[in-house]
Design a protein around this nucleic acid. Structure first.
Lengths: 208, 208
DNA sequence: CAGGTTAGTGACAGCCACTGACAGTTGACA
DNA sequence: TGTCAACTGTCAGTGGCTGTCACTAACCTG
């Protein structure tokens, strides 16, 4: 049960989040000031900073939720599965859940537009990559535990996750530049790219 | 032949660079203000911003030089070489040249300390990852041209480079946390990790 | 339901990175 | 030596972000 105070808090937070994404995607991240976001929701600038640690935080609030769902899906995979397969299956499986999680806060369309904005704005791209790195560290530890190896002495967990993360990043990038922006495209691009990693490493691409 | 004006400019720039790295590595990046850097060289804050686009730029000035040398080395590899091998060989080969390039501006010791600082400070790590992504984009185009494939339709150049970049990042990370910080360690770590990528992808690590 | 307690808020002042405008200074060159 | 262009300093201003303090609204206890 939610108290009145909590309800008000949640409404303020979600209003700020939504207003921020709307402004970021329409007029750009750099060109949007915190004052504008606060004004759009009719609260003081100081209040904005009580809900979000900074302008960057609000931009990634939704992505963070989706990524958390993905990490949880990886944790839930059967332990006998090979590492790369666990990552792949977790991604495909958590797809619908991620969508629901997102939809509960902001329109999916808005969330997808944010991906394009992030890719276009250097400041956001840098933050995105750092966050991705943090997630990769978490995933590496999960995989290491599953396989019973020490993440600090055996580089393979980190290597596997780095490759997977690289594929995810390239997928995002390609999806952002492509015309048809349906959410299912990401899904097929990811599996396609994962399948091609092997051949990408063993040179002589012309033969194919 | 260098004119007096040019000499003064170069001296000011290198003084600023050195002072900045010294301050960043000793007292931290966030805790160092641009005013401090300018004061250390006895120049106005405004002048600092005429030499460097921002606080971030000065932090990566040396890395940028080293990376440029690496990219040039990749370009110089014989065209018949397989992509991943070209990257690996270029890295090993350009090692000494990178060291010379660095030494010509700041002490190598200082430069190596910056790697640790970058890894430790979130703001710098984010910037580092974004710059690495930019370099990867360049490398992908170089590889694509070598192999005669289209970088926009064939994902393999970007995939290969992403894997290589991932290995480089993990190498840096591991090297930063390890005790012995000799420059040769990076070299051996890189080759070792590159050799293990294959087995990292094909699961069942316990068997090894 | 009256009281005090606590959480959330707004207004203000201040720090720091960064930029534009303008004026002063110094090296280059005829 | 005088002129021009490059370099620099000063000043004012913007935007992200933080600390402080007083005020109000919501909660809780008797």
């Amino acid at each position: 049960m939610e108290t009145l105070r909590e309800r008000k808090k949640r409404r303020t937070r979600e209003s700020l989040l939504r207003a921020a994404l709307e402004l970021f995607t329409t007029q750009g991240y750099e060109r949007t000031t915190v004052d504008e976001i606060a004004d759009a929701v009719d609260v003081s600038q100081r209040t904005f900073f009580r809900y979000f640690a900074g302008k960057e935080d609000v931009a990634f609030a939704v992505q963070d939720m989706a990524e958390a769902a993905f990490v949880a899906a990886v944790r839930a995979r059967p332990p006998h599965e090979a590492p790369m397969r666990a990552l792949r299956q977790a991604f495909l499986e958590s797809w619908d859940e991620m969508r629901e999680t997102v939809e509960s806060v902001v329109p999916v369309e808005l969330h997808l537009n944010m991906y394009r904005t992030i890719e276009a704005e250097p400041a956001l791209l840098a933050a995105r990559l750092r966050r991705l790195a943090a997630t990769e560290e978490t995933l590496a530890r999960v995989l290491a535990e599953r396989e019973g190896v020490d993440v600090d002495t055996d580089p393979r967990p980190r290597l596997a996750v780095a490759v997977f993360g690289g594929v995810m990043r390239i997928t995002e990038q390609q999806w952002c530049t492509s015309e048809d922006s349906g959410p299912e495209v990401i899904r097929s691009l990811t599996t396609s790219y994962l399948d091609q990693v092997g051949s990408a490493l063993t040179g002589n691409w012309r033969a194919a």
